Simulated scan of single mutants.
Amino acid sequence: MSMYVVTVLFEVAPEHVDSFRPEMLKQAENSLKLEPGCHQFDVCFDAEDPGKCFLYEKYTDRAAFDVHLASDHFKTFSETVADWVTGKTVHVWLETPAS
């Protein structure tokens, strides 16, 4: 079965990096704990530029991702970091398992 994969690249203003990091980690933890359709939520920070944050998320399907977007914890996170983020790139992928 293929999974619905979402990658996100955040660019965070330098003065907000220290505040963004714990909020992002809390968001990942909440997604994994509270959403049965969220199977993976990796958070990576660029080794050279701490203002860049990359997410790799796996969901059962699009409906599970829609549940994520509608969740209270996602809405709270988005509102909290909105003014800290200077750029955001989102891509959607369909995982193709090897035979």
Rank of each mutant, 00 (worst) to 15 (best):
residue 75 K to H: 11
residue 24 M to E: 07
residue 17 V to L: 04
residue 79 E to P: 02
residue 17 V to S: 03
residue 99 S to T: 11
residue 47 A to Y: 01
residue 46 D to R: 02
residue 52 K to F: 10
residue 52 K to T: 08
residue 35 E to L: 12
residue 67 V to F: 03
residue 94 L to P: 01
residue 27 Q to M: 14
residue 33 K to N: 15
residue 94 L to G: 08
residue 8 V to T: 14
residue 9 L to I: 10
residue 39 H to T: 04
residue 72 D to C: 01
residue 1 M to I: 05
residue 41 F to G: 03
residue 87 G to I: 09
residue 80 T to V: 14
residue 57 E to T: 06
residue 7 T to H: 03
residue 58 K to Y: 04
residue 24 M to P: 00
residue 25 L to P: 02
residue 53 C to Y: 01
residue 43 V to E: 02
residue 6 V to A: 09
residue 49 D to P: 02
residue 43 V to Q: 03
residue 99 S to E: 14
residue 37 G to T: 06
residue 33 K to I: 03
residue 84 W to H: 09
residue 56 Y to E: 04
residue 62 R to G: 01
residue 44 C to I: 04
residue 44 C to S: 13
residue 66 D to R: 12
residue 86 T to S: 15
residue 24 M to Q: 10
residue 69 L to H: 06
residue 57 E to D: 09
residue 38 C to V: 04
residue 9 L to R: 14
residue 63 A to P: 00
residue 68 H to Y: 10
residue 60 T to V: 13
residue 93 W to R: 05
residue 88 K to I: 14
residue 34 L to E: 13
residue 31 S to W: 00
residue 90 V to M: 10
residue 44 C to T: 09
residue 84 W to G: 07
residue 71 S to Q: 08
residue 24 M to C: 14
residue 29 E to K: 13
residue 45 F to E: 07
residue 26 K to S: 13
residue 70 A to I: 04
residue 45 F to C: 09
residue 67 V to Q: 12
residue 54 F to A: 08
residue 93 W to G: 01
residue 62 R to C: 05
residue 19 S to E: 12
residue 1 M to D: 11
residue 11 E to V: 07
residue 57 E to V: 08
residue 54 F to V: 11
residue 14 P to H: 07
residue 80 T to M: 08
residue 53 C to P: 02
residue 4 Y to Q: 04
residue 96 T to V: 15
residue 94 L to V: 15
residue 19 S to M: 05
residue 83 D to K: 12
residue 76 T to N: 12
residue 51 G to C: 07
residue 76 T to Y: 08
residue 57 E to P: 07
residue 84 W to K: 10
residue 97 P to Y: 06
residue 71 S to D: 08
residue 76 T to H: 09
residue 4 Y to D: 01
residue 16 H to R: 14
residue 47 A to K: 07
residue 14 P to L: 07
residue 64 A to W: 05
residue 34 L to V: 01
residue 64 A to Y: 06
residue 61 D to G: 11
residue 83 D to F: 04
residue 96 T to Q: 14
residue 25 L to K: 10
residue 89 T to H: 12
residue 92 V to A: 11
residue 43 V to A: 12
residue 19 S to R: 14
residue 15 E to S: 12
residue 38 C to N: 10
residue 32 L to P: 02
residue 68 H to C: 07
residue 7 T to S: 14
residue 80 T to H: 05
residue 39 H to G: 06
residue 55 L to H: 04
residue 97 P to D: 09
residue 82 A to Y: 06
residue 90 V to N: 04
residue 64 A to I: 09
residue 9 L to F: 01
residue 97 P to K: 10
residue 55 L to R: 03
residue 38 C to K: 01
residue 20 F to I: 09
residue 50 P to W: 02
residue 86 T to H: 05
residue 73 H to W: 10
residue 98 A to Y: 10
residue 62 R to P: 00
residue 81 V to D: 05
